[in-house]
Amino acid sequence: MASSSPSSSSSSSSSTPHSAAPHPHYDRLIAAARALPPLRVAVVHPVNAVSLEAALASAALGLIAPTLVGPRAKIEAAAREAGADISHLTIVDAPHSHAAADAAVAMALRGEVDALMKGSLHTDELMGAVVRREGGLRTSRRISHCFVMDIPGHAQPLVISDAAINIAPTLEEKVDIVQNAIDLAHALHMPAVRVAILSATETVNAKVPSTLDAAVLCKMADRGQITGAQLDGPLAMDNAIDAEAARIKGIVSPVAGRANVLIVPDLDAGNMLAKSLTFLGGAYAAGIVLGTKVPVILTSRADSESARLASCAVASMLVKAGKDRLIKAVG
């Protein structure tokens, strides 16, 4: 994957701003996922208490059925540190983190698990195994990342892409990034999917390449090359999510002021936006990798428990949506 992120940008949720902030969107998401069968998940290299506890908390709620993949001795030591009983769980012994990532990907290819979950290893180590051209989890789609964000006081969850994998995506790559995000929104049962293609301005300006990309993406949607949502862009952040800002600017659009999917121009913009919402706005950020044969759940040591649970719930609903599409196509 030519434009993969050089560092772990998965999900960043500080526990401090979340202590008093309600997150009803995640509550509903987790409740919906709990009604589904537990997702078979390979937890990759969970060799510290934090990463292991994330998997065990999700399992306790019935969201996942975890298989722990990594050095057995280190996993058992992490369990002792966490005071957790893992005697009932399957451990696939692997000597180190790279081998654990390879083993988890192989399990997914054999149909033994429905998703992968990042444990205590660098995101690049896991994604290196996922994106490998031979023996990886690539599909015909560009691999991309989405945050599903629950922002206190905001009427709906926001999907933000791509803030963690694609550094400076081309127009062609943005087509897949947008379609991946739309498909995710449908899997989460958003009643209407409204996609804002973000830039610094809401007018097309030849000197600002992101505005040109936005205009082309919207025309591609008009021609059926991107499906399943209403698109508008370029839109600035204010008039994408605030109806009054859109009114003042004179923007008449079914998306402006009401967007629930935000497509950023590059990784820098997306990462700053997501982390600003998290650390200044008290938002939770559930991270998921799309465009792969199975979803990849990306968590961070800084994530709250609710964000970790929501990431598993997102993966569960994605897998359910994929199975529903297959049944519909066959039947």
Results as ranks from 00 to 15, higher is better:
P46I: 07
T90N: 06
E76C: 01
P46S: 10
I86Q: 00
A60Y: 00
G70V: 04
V44W: 05
I75V: 11
G62Q: 11
S51P: 11
A84S: 02
A94Q: 07
V47N: 08
P66K: 10
A79T: 03
V69R: 09
P46A: 13
I91T: 05
S58V: 14
P66N: 12
A54S: 11
A54Y: 15
A82H: 06
K74Y: 04
G62W: 08
I75N: 05
T90W: 07
V44Q: 07
T67F: 13
V44I: 10
S87L: 01
I91L: 04
A77W: 01
K74D: 06
I86N: 00
V47H: 06
L52Q: 12
R72Y: 08
L63T: 03
A94M: 06
E81H: 05
L63P: 05
D93Y: 02
L63E: 10
G62V: 09
N48A: 11
L61W: 07
I64N: 10
I64R: 09
H88A: 04
A73E: 05
P66I: 08
V47I: 14
H45C: 13
H88M: 01
K74N: 02
R72V: 09
P46T: 10
A57G: 12
A65E: 15
L56D: 08
P46C: 08
A82V: 03
A94W: 05
A65Q: 15
V50D: 13
G83S: 01
H45L: 11
A73L: 09
